[in-house]
């Protein structure tokens, strides 16, 4: 019962396409867990299997200690990637409806729905139809529909996509609050900064296969440190930094990786003469860097051994 979610050797195929390939995961209770991966990597399929919308072809899934999510459906909250509401329903009604579908009784659900909507700044919209709302408001309403029944495990598929900065903060605060309340939050994203800021643990899936999984610190351990540089000036000189193996230049900020044994002090000295430095930091690689490298490495491996994939 220590785990919110355990996957063991889970495989899902659609025809000849393997969407998820022998995926094993242990997600402890009470943490914020990030599912990383490119579009089409298999995140959504994994989530749908966890929600028992799809059934795996092989392997086992244990949700909240039960062998099948349908046994604990009422304790789960799910916000799918593609968000939609009934256009003709009133805001408070639809939130309450989702609550009732999760086993809440009518009066509690109605009360809770209005309360939540008011807390989230939609007090004026309680009795307005969903079609009248902006996209951001609609997403908020849907999030509340996911949370109204106080689920033990919440799964959010790309919760930040399409949100403005204010609503992003609302989403972030909500996730953090749930963690404080002892709930488990799993969310998928391809924005690494978000995962890095929020998650206790992450996993990455690429082309149906698990690449890495674990606590953030653990994942970063043993990987090349890099220089994070905030600068002004001509970024093109960064390409010729001595002893650099990789440079991720974003215009105002850059991440620079050095050959093993190279001295970051020397690099700093070299840079001082060429650009205006506002920040210089030598630290473990960002999740972004790890993600990009993992994708590159995996693609290189696949290119080198195309037969291996066919056999899986």
């Amino acid at each position: 019962m220590n785990y919110a979610l355990r996957l063991h050797e889970v495989t899902k195929r659609f025809g000849s396409f393997t969407a998820v390939d022998r995926l094993s995961l242990d997600i402890p209770r009470g943490c914020i867990y990030g599912l990383l991966g490119q579009n089409g990597a298999g995140k959504t399929t994994t989530i749908r299997m966890v929600m028992s919308i799809f059934h795996p072809d092989s392997g086992t899934i244990e949700v909240l200690g039960k062998p099948d999510a349908s046994m604990v459906k009422d304790k789960l909250g799910y916000l799918p990637e593609e968000k939609g509401l009934y256009k003709k329903m009133r805001t408070a009604e639809i939130v309450a409806y989702f609550g009732k579908l999760k086993g809440m009784d009518t009066s509690t659900a109605n009360l809770k729905a209005r309360e939540l909507l008011t807390t989230y700044g939609l007090g004026d919209w309680l009795d307005k139809k969903c079609e009248a709302m902006s996209k951001g408001m609609g997403q908020k309403v849907q999030l509340l529909g996911t949370l109204i029944h106080d689920p033990e495990l919440v799964i959010l598929d790309e919760p930040f996509s399409g949100l403005d900065p204010v609503n992003r903060d609302v989403m972030r605060d909500t996730i953090l609050r749930m963690k404080r309340e002892g709930r488990t939050v799993i969310f998928s994203t391809h924005v690494m900064e978000q995962a890095e800021q929020l998650c206790d643990s992450v996993m990455m899936i690429h082309k149906s296969k698990l690449q890495f999984a674990g606590a953030l610190g653990q994942i970063k351990q043993g990987r090349d440190f890099g220089i994070v540089l905030d600068y002004d000036g001509d970024g093109s000189v960064l390409k010729s930094v001595p002893n650099a193996t990789r440079v991720n230049d974003s215009g105002k900020q850059a991440e620079i990786f050095l050959q093993s044994g190279a001295d970051p002090q020397q690099t700093l000295r070299w840079l001082v003469d060429r650009v205006t430095i506002r920040r210089f930091e030598y630290r473990a690689p960002t999740l972004h860097e790890i993600f990009v490298r993992t994708v590159e490495d995996a693609n290189a491996r696949l290119a080198a051994a195309p037969v291996a994939q066919g056999a899986s």
């Binding site: 929600m51 009422d74 799918p80 968000k83 939609g84 529909g145």
Partner: peptide, 13 residues
């Protein structure tokens, strides 16, 4: 078409 089906299916069979 408005994808609400997925939310529903996470609650009902």
């Amino acid at each position: 078409s408005n994808r609400i089906i997925e939310v529903l299916l996470s609650s009902v069979s």
